[in-house]
């Protein structure tokens, strides 16, 4: 196998994979530039000369601005907080699981697994009733708490796997060399653990960002409504016209952070995901 041939082969494979992965995104991107009356042109691209940024204007500076921008703010805020809390709690928990011996370790892991397979739809109604009665309905905490049920389990599993791989002897070695416990931890362990924690944060953020069911069921106003739920609130020019363009434009905007994170951290995310799930 000559190297040119393999390069060409890999070039083709990469293009195929890229088309697979990016085509639907490109599709909705093209839709987002279609004018409302051009939506039915049955073509991938807007009709020539008809391409418009009107849909973006509608959601960023126009009618739907209040709806979309507040939803975007809610989504970002809620997801960041939920991610932060999940990562903090999971770091503590995973450290204990990886390094300490205590009864119930398996129980914690099993619980995390059970929670992660929980049908979200099953707990939405009881949560709704509970949130109503204690005033958490339609608030940020009212979404952050259920988001923890999505982000915590995977964070614990991913981090536990990460921490198991850290050569903790380094800490002792550093201590032997005269460092204090704190210094040893900071100099030897943090640099090894930080990438894992960071990766976990990105994965947790993706999961929270993806939620739809909690978003539509536990909010009712701009106070807490996240983006995926807000997409269902867009309207066309009247009650019966479909907001295809606005939805597409909003879809593209909420996909931008995903693409940026992926571009910047693909290596970390891949290693985080692959280590979290299976480690022989």
């Amino acid at each position: 196998m000559t190297s040119t041939r393999s390069k060409v082969l890999w070039g083709i494979v990469s293009v195929l994979v890229a088309v697979y992965a990016l085509f639907p995104v490109a599709s909705i991107l093209a839709t987002s530039f279609k004018a409302p009356s051009d939506l039915t042109n049955q073509k991938f691209l807007p009709s020539p000369g008809q391409a418009t940024t009107g849909n973006y204007e509608q959601i960023l500076v126009g009618d739907a601005q209040g709806l979309f921008l507040t939803a975007l703010r809610n989504s970002i805020g809620i997801c960041l907080i939920a991610t932060f809390i999940a990562v903090v709690l999971a770091t503590l928990c995973a450290y204990a699981i990886a390094r300490l011996d205590f009864p119930g370790k398996k129980l914690v892991l099993t619980t995390a697994l059970a929670v992660s397979i929980f049908p979200v739809i099953s707990i939405v109604t009881p949560l709704f009733n509970l949130w109503r009665s204690i005033g958490l309905y339609d608030t940020w905490p009212g979404l952050i708490i259920p988001y923890l049920s999505l982000t915590l389990p995977i964070s614990i599993w991913t981090l536990a796997a990460f921490f198991r791989q850290i050569p903790w002897e380094l800490e002792q070695a550093a201590q032997v060399d005269g460092a204090t416990t704190w210094q040893a931890f900071r100099k030897a362990i943090v640099p090894l653990a930080a990438p894992g924690v960071f990766t976990t944060a990105i994965i947790a953020f993706f999961i929270a960002w993806n939620d739809f069911v909690y978003g539509i069921s536990l909010t009712s106003t701009e106070a807490a409504r996240p983006v995926p739920a807000a997409l269902a609130f867009f309207t066309g020019a009247s009650q019966f016209e479909e907001p295809t363009g606005a939805i597409s434009a909003a879809a593209i905007i909420v996909t931008i952070p995903v693409v940026v994170l992926v571009l910047a951290f693909q290596r970390q995310i891949v290693s985080g995901l692959t280590q979290g799930a299976v480690k022989g």
Binding site: G66, T70, I134, G135, L136, D138, T139, W140, P141, G142, T221, E222, A223, A224
Partner: peptide, 26 residues
Amino acid sequence: MPTRKRNSARNRSRAGTVASVLAGTL
């Protein structure tokens, strides 16, 4: 716009209070 902001601020502060005083807030 200002009305929306006021509304959400009120709701959020309500949530905050709830965390500490459950019954009173309602």
